[in-house]
């Protein structure tokens, strides 16, 4: 659906910033695609290159077979009408009521008054704000404002929704409800969602695919489950540490135990099977569980264990092979 081909963008000024350094990326249609990175990684520029709110210095941005860089201002406005966008700070018009805010893109599209009324009604229902249509944004909470933003972005039935740090200004509870709304929209309306965030939890909760951006460079991209369980880059591993609690406590590392410390990751059906107990029985070694958790990646169950394997070298090697054969991700941490 969206393809970046070697896109670069540099901001010149007092401090020259190379926001994007040759990013090539494919975003498939229909799913939820997350771009994660620290602040200053270039993700905000990246998402703005999709609808040309920022123009790349070089490279190509394709959306649905259209080369966005080449569009005339008029064509670009038309293309933008087919793309929704929501923002970290909501960016609602303070002089307009909720109804008028949601109606704004419809006005731009020249939709008749009657149709505007029924469409706004539908959208308000979708985001759960039917009783707030006549209030002004100032009277709404952050979560409600973002719901208005979402309704507004969906008004013209776009095929693509861009989310610029849409939950970063919200508390965890509200974040969850806004994310689940986005997921519902993605599933029911079948539109593609591209979101940028600095929170791994957001990616984990709703994304199918993820791209990791660091210093304007794409470090890796792939299915969330793959990137989370087998991070290929240091940047990804660093960001995952906070989420998984998988950083080894210093005390354990320095203990210098003779036992082998491994991290096991169970995905999907594996998370339901008694693999550890089978391993103990078939390989006759002791297992000491240091840390464990089970979680979900969007809808996929996902478990993580930090264990010590106590046995002879051969026993341990065979146990690891056994685990791998059962499609458990094994990472030997020490010795």
């Amino acid at each position: 659906m969206i393809e970046f081909k070697d896109v670069t963008k540099t901001f010149t000024g007092k401090n020259t910033v190379h926001a994007l350094k040759g990013v090539s990326l494919k975003i498939p249609a229909g799913g939820i695609f997350g771009v994660i990175g620290q602040s200053g990684a270039g993700k905000s520029t990246l998402i703005r290159c999709i609808n040309m709110l920022e123009r790349p210095d070089s490279g190509e941005v394709w959306v649905d077979g259209i080369l966005m860089n080449r569009l005339s201002p008029k064509e670009l406005r038309q293309a933008r009408k087919e793309t929704g966008m929501i923002f970290q700070h909501f960016n609602l018009l303070s002089s307009r009521t909720v109804f008028q805010n949601i109606a704004f893109p419809l006005e731009l599209a020249g939709v008749s008054k009657d149709k505007v009324r029924s469409r706004v009604g539908q959208l308000a229902e979708l985001v759960g704000l039917t009783d707030k249509l006549q209030t002004y944004p100032r009277q709404l909470s952050g979560g409600q404002k973002q719901r208005v933003g979402i309704a507004r972005a969906l008004a013209t039935e776009p095929k693509l929704l861009l989310c610029d740090e849409a939950t970063s200004a919200l508390d965890p509870e509200t974040t969850r409800s806004v994310l689940s709304l986005l997921r519902t929209i993605n599933e029911n309306l079948g539109l593609t969602i591209v979101l940028i965030t600095h929170e791994m939890a957001v990616i984990q909760q709703i994304c199918d695919h993820v791209a990791v951006l660091e210093d304007g460079v794409l470090r890796e991209t792939g299915r969330v489950i793959d990137v989370f369980t087998r991070p290929q880059s240091q940047a990804t591993a660093n960001m995952l540490q906070g989420l998984h609690g998988s950083k080894l406590p210093a005390e354990l590392r320095s203990k210098g135990s003779a036992n082998t410390l491994v991290r096991l990751t169970f995905i999907d059906q594996r998370a339901h099977q008694p693999i550890i107990s089978q391993m103990i029985r078939t390989h006759d070694l002791d297992v000491n569980i240091l840390y464990g958790r089970i979680d979900q990646m969007k809808t996929t169950p996902f478990g993580m264990l930090l264990v010590e394997l106590d046995g002879t070298r051969e026993q341990v090697t065979e146990a690891v092979q056994f685990l791998q054969k059962n499609q458990v991700e094994v990472e030997v941490l020490s010795p």
Partner: peptide, 12 residues
């Protein structure tokens, strides 16, 4: 941001 939002909706 409000002006950017309007631009993102294709406002001239």
């Amino acid at each position: 941001g409000v002006i950017e939002a309007a631009e993102s909706m294709g406002a001239s």
